[in-house]
Design a binder for these strands. Structure first.
Lengths: 161, 161
DNA sequence: TATTGTTATACTCTATAACTATA
DNA sequence: TATAGTTATAGAGTATAACAATA
């Protein structure tokens, strides 16, 4: 959706943010798809490499639901990039261990991600890119840190079958 | 989803754009919901007010599917903000005419939209806000103008029932 | 034949609920 | 009792197909 603001209005920040984030997301998806990854898979791969983490911990880091995590880990396992290992301290939990192949793919995917990001920043004058990042970081940590409550779209509890 | 970039990487533009656009979208939805509008309804309202436009033209302007347009116009009609009128030049097409009440609501909703945008920009130092807008406009018109093709997510044709 | 608007429906995504096994 | 992970499925959003009227 576009164009929240006609003439004589405040600049249409909604459009600017929505459009750029959408286009960048499609670029990223397309670039990662070339090595068989989704953005979520890359995200889990990278965080699981940093240290031993359970599915729940990885879900929180990637801001996903634990059920979404299940399918993401399923995909990583199926591709031979990760394995579920029982935690030595909690028999309920699974540590997501990255395989050797997974580590290699993670290196590639990180290069891809960095490349897509850098290409966008390089398309700007250096000083603009710098200020853009500073301003965006400020918004993310301050005024636009937390989402508003959903207005009417409250998800109803599902019916008992 | 968050955190495409760990240490030693290019700045995580994906996260910055996704997070800010998501939060701003929830703010906008919540603010517009107070007068019974969705962002789409506001968008159609404003564009239909500018000049006589058909549903298809409005759909293109708002980057929606024509079927999404149908439900949006349904909602506007039900709320008494717009009416479908037969086009005088093409008997297939419907002109979306905004009612008096619709015009008034559009004025309010535009003020709401501007307020949400301005509040975000006011949260930044003036020079940062200026450069942010310049940089975002540059990205939107240049490097991040057009989405990449969807990689695998090709929608299959539906089965004949 | 192509296009506007409509209805109906299928697809994708994600969250909810319910469950098992542990804690 | 609460939590980690799993399965199954409901709900929201949206695109596709088919259609009627008209171009």
């Amino acid at each position: 959706m576009t164009a929240m603001a006609p003439a004589r209005s405040a600049p249409d920040l909604s459009y600017l943010l929505d459009h750029t984030s959408h286009v960048l997301r499609t670029r990223m998806a397309a670039a990662l798809a070339e090595i068989g990854l989704t953005a979520r898979m890359h995200c889990v791969l990278v965080h699981a490499l940093e240290e031993e983490r359970t599915q729940i911990q990885l879900a929180e880091l990637g801001d996903m639901d634990k059920t979404t995590m299940v399918v993401t880990v399923d995909a990583l396992e199926k591709a031979g990039l990760a394995e579920r290992r029982p935690s030595s301290t909690d028999r309920r939990a699974r540590i997501i261990a990255i395989t050797e192949k997974g580590a290699e793919v993670a290196k590639q995917s990180q290069a891809i991600v960095d490349g897509v990001h850098q290409a966008a920043l390089d398309a700007l004058p250096k000083d603009e890119a710098e200020v853009l990042l500073r301003a965006m970081n400020r918004l993310v940590t301050e005024h636009l840190a937390t989402p508003a409550e959903a207005p009417q779209g409250v998800r109803r509890a599902r019916q008992k079958s």
